[in-house]
Design a protein around this nucleic acid. Sequence first.
DNA 1: ATGCCGCGCTCCGCGCGA
Length: 266
Amino acid sequence: MSGAAIPSSLKLASFNINGIKARLPRLLEWLEETRPSVACLQEIKTQDEGFPAAEFEKIGYHAIWHGQKGFNGVAILADGEKPVEVQRGLAGEPEDEHSRYLEADVFGLRVVCIYLPNGNPQPGPKFDYKLRWMERLRARMAEIWAQEVPAAVLGDYNVIPRDNDIWDTRAMASDALMQPASRDAYARLLGAGWTDAIGLHHPQGGAWTFWDYQAGAWQRDHGFRIDHALLSPELADRLVASGVDKAHRGREKASDHAPVWVSLRA
DNA sequence: ATGCCGCGCTCCGCGCGA
């Protein structure tokens, strides 16, 4: 720990940035405008040595990251305190070299950043990998649960949990993101007590976090909700607000995802 | 039924994403 004081309230955010090099100006702008205490990033798409840590230091954020050449890659940034890494990658498949999981302690919380496999096309080996990865994640979340630490698992889950989390279920009916097996595995992640914070605050749906670059999806508001913040019971009790920074999806050179966030009482 | 758009990489089109 750096010795920085724990803030009186905590804002935890997640943002699939689709390339940290291409997105750096937009990402710095979002951090300065919304100032999350913790920001989980996915799809940084860079090797470790290319991670622009100095750019974040300049605006007061300390980071840890798990990169990979060309694809995937996750990072955890914190405002004024360096996250203390607990684990990178999930147990259970030693040959799996995808950089999709990073876990740290920061501000007295356990924070997990995930980039869950897409799984398309389904059926097929990529879908099988997705489901295996979800089971590996479930096993790790059970371990964290057993440690009884206040914990949040944020990221791109690549699962559309409910029919009202997409503009048109027919458009994606055969997609890996909303197959019954994907939804069942997501329900098992929630298990007996993790809270989908953004889903809780949007029971009628409509809280899209992704709009495809193609076919005018943004202009038509053809989106869906796949970026989630799961909270352990102690953090769910401290939940005061959540949201999607939708406007950032409409800017120049935007990611195809919008940032999501939860606000917690200290 | 496919591509649309955008990323990284080295390929000057392709794999990948959702």
